[in-house]
Design a protein around this nucleic acid. Structure first.
Length: 250
DNA sequence: CGGCATGTTGCGCA
DNA sequence: TTGCGCAACATGCC
């Protein structure tokens, strides 16, 4: 589920569901997902509070409460928030719940790589994500990061301290759109390539935000490239499977 | 059963 | 010191 566009979609629904609402009760039974901190602290921090806003930085979500404390949520690989009626039974893989009046918002996460943190201030994980660049992506910063790295371009794209929110899917698809070989040393890209990559990222994010989830190369090793029909290959870069078209991403 | 998975962190080593 | 490669985290699914 979660890459940046998915997390943004989750943010919007949380804002819709929680914004301005008073939390009647909250609880989690999962000390792993809610670590560090006790499961009881989760309920104590949220109960009785009013939600004043829901923000996102990269893949981190922040729910601000009227007493200044905050709930941070990272969805890991399989996390999501869903809304059900207050009395509804636990969802499959439910890890936490926030009860409003008539409704209840539940955190579900099969693989449990997600995190829930309650704190009185911004946590290090949130601060480390650098603020989202206004007006989208900072192309000059991207060019700078490329220029001083000797890693493959795809590894730089997936570095969360460079570009918060770009994961394996967006990086893979953006490079295909840009016709850039993911294995190419980042510092070797021409200014035109850098521009194409930036455009590729923006385009891919927009596409996924619009609910499009059919991919050109991601997860399609062995299939024909939608652009030139060559057979899609995959390699491992930075420990992640990386699909690309050996013909038009050269 | 084996292999793979949309993310992140921490460790050992060069 | 910095950066890189890789295992680990916990679990589901094909």
């Amino acid at each position: 589920m979660p890459e940046l566009p998915d997390v943004e979609i989750v943010r919007r629904k949380l804002r819709r569901w929680l914004g301005g609402q008073r939390i009647a009760a909250a609880s989690t039974g999962d000390a792993y997902v809610a670590r560090p901190g006790s499961t009881r602290a989760f309920g104590r921090a949220l109960a009785g509070r009013r939600v004043v806003g829901v923000d996102r930085r990269g893949k981190w979500l922040r729910v601000r409460l009227d007493d200044g404390s905050r709930l941070f949520s990272h969805l890991g690989m399989t996390g999501d928030w869903v809304r059900v009626d207050a009395g509804a039974a636990p969802e499959r893989f439910e890890r936490a719940r926030i009860d409003l009046g008539e409704r209840s918002v539940r955190y579900v996460d099969a693989r449990r790589f997600g995190r829930l943190l309650v704190a009185r201030d911004d946590v290090a994980e949130w601060r480390a994500r650098g603020p989202a660049p206004r007006g989208g992506l900072d192309e000059r910063a991207l060019a700078g990061a490329f220029a001083k790295s000797r890693r493959a371009v795809k590894e730089v794209l997936m570095d969360q301290s460079v570009l918060a929110g770009v994961g394996n899917i967006i990086a893979t698809e953006a490079l295909w759109r840009a016709r850039v070989d993911p294995r190419a040393p980042a510092r070797r890209l021409s200014p035109r390539d850098v521009r194409a990559v930036a455009r590729g990222i923006r385009g891919e994010i927009a596409r996924e935000l619009a609910g499009e989830h059919r991919f050109a190369v991601y997860g399609r090793r062995g299939h024909p490239c939608p652009r030139c029909h060559a057979k899609i290959r995959s390699v491992r870069l930075g420990g992640r499977t990386t699909a690309f078209c050996p013909s038009c991403q050269a």
